[in-house]
Amino acid sequence: MSRFSAVVARDVRLALRQGGGSYWTLMFFILTVTLFPLGVGPDLALLSRIGSGVLWVVALLAALLSLDRLFQADYEDGSLELLALAPLPLELTVLAKVLAHWLTTGLPVTLLAPLMGAMLAIEPAAYPTLMVAMLLGTPVLSLVGSIGAALTVGIRRGGVLLSLLVMPLYVPALIFGALAVEATLEGLSPRPHLLLLGADLLVALALTPWGAAAALRLNLE
């Protein structure tokens, strides 16, 4: 377990240091959300209707943007091969790196969500649901994305391809996450949507490390 946390700590440290990319991802999230009112107009009624969807789509883009660095840097400098040979199974290494990715992108995005929600005129009553939904949904983005990141690790300009591969697989998380917020806004219970989102997370948690590890082994040969 200490080996696991060592990988997490290392990756979090790398992401948070200057130029590590975590801040840039957050900046991207904030700036892109800001563009939407400028694009569709300052009509607060319209913004509050599309707000939760906008937050989810932008969170998804922010995750994609940072995912291509998930294994790339370690692949380029060779440390990925060392990690693959380490006593910690590669599946757990993948999980540790995914956790670090989520801690440096998904979690801050979740914490920022109410602030950006206020800018999009989302009813404050929906903030708890929004945050719970993001807490359940953003790990799915990191987990599912890890397969795409592992598959494209050896490819030049793999970032765009990564987005193409992964985006269709993000559909369930996007749908359940946005529906939960919508249900709360309409005075309905978000519980079924959140439960389904949780189920999606469990499936992703159980399966993606194997897929990503298999893809990494293939690219390390």
């Binding site: 599912v144 397969i147 598959l151 269709p168 697989l169 369930p172 749908i175 359940f176 529906l179 690219n219």
Partner: peptide, 27 residues
């Protein structure tokens, strides 16, 4: 290599497609 990468992607998709179908139906 392309074959194995594509196979992993196809299998990931085959797990996901029923979930996607169900989620869209729910939607």
């Amino acid at each position: 290599r392309a074959g194995r990468a594509a196979a992993i992607l196809a299998l990931a998709g085959s797990v996901n497609l029923p979930i996607i179908h169900y989620s869209v139906e729910w939607w």
